[in-house]
């Protein structure tokens, strides 16, 4: 039986108290299974980053439940003491900009996280080389991020996110800094990764032209999350 993915039940987040309380997320529930690519969409200020930070174990929810695979990690409080270890072992992150460590070369950027996880060096090395080969960067192992194009750096960031074999990848507008051609290429790649690596990917995007690559759409409406099917053609969702 396949494990992995993410399940969220009745998640709430409120900033402030009393009259000043702002209820950003109000009972969000959704599921993204391994092998699925989901798009998280909403107008600016609707709570995309807040939701992403909560399911990324960076921000404390006010209440609700979060499951990573078969493991419940949040039930009105974090059930794991060290959320940073949780992030390191179970979640991969991809950002708007690539945010690679500028003083590490491509190979070291990908090796850093599994080595911090105390994984054996030969296995880490093999996995990093395999991922970078898979993403077409086998010629760039020792290049510095400053020597690569935006698209190449974003692929290194994807390799880094995959290096620890996470159950879920959270991609925060990974195509925002790319032109439309490269954006399509990156999202196609994310879809391919989701299918081949059997990982659940949640991608925040403002670009409705990319939604057709996704398996489902998570749309934040009035603090709740509606799960919608992907469009067959380009249409306005946001």
């Amino acid at each position: 039986m396949e494990t992995g993915g993410i399940r969220v039940n009745n998640l709430h987040k409120t900033f402030g108290q009393g009259e000043n309380a702002v209820h950003v997320i109000q009972g969000a529930s959704f599921e993204v299974k391994p092998g699925e690519l989901a798009a998280l969409i909403a107008p600016s200020g609707a709570g995309k980053s807040t939701l992403l930070m909560m399911i990324g174990c960076v921000l404390d929810p006010s209440s609700g439940e979060i499951w990573l695979g078969d493991t419940q990690v949040y039930q009105n409080r974090w059930l794991e003491k060290d959320t940073r270890t949780l992030r390191r072992e179970k979640i991969g992150f991809i950002f708007q900009a690539h945010y690679l460590i500028p003083f590490l070369n491509v190979l070291d950027n990908v090796r850093l996280l599994p080595l911090a996880n105390q994984e054996p060096l030969p296995q880490v090395e093999a996995r990093a080389r395999e991922l970078l080969g898979y993403l077409g960067l086998e010629e760039k192992l020792h290049a510095m991020p400053s020597d690569l194009s935006g698209g190449q750096n974003q692929r290194v960031a994807i390799a880094r996110a995959l290096a620890t074999r996470p159950q879920i990848i959270l991609a925060d507008e990974p195509t925002a800094a790319l032109d439309i051609e490269r954006a399509h290429s990156v999202v196609q790649l994310l879809r391919q990764i989701a299918k081949e690596q059997r990982v659940a990917i949640i991608m925040v995007t403002h670009d409705e032209r990319l939604l057709s690559y996704c398996d489902k759409i998570l749309k934040i409406v009035a603090g709740k999350v509606d799960t919608l099917p992907p469009p067959e053609t380009t249409e306005t969702f946001i």
Partner: peptide, 13 residues
Amino acid sequence: IKEISIMKLIGIP
């Protein structure tokens, strides 16, 4: 500090 924030976010101890 930005790189440090990233490192902390992705789980570097």
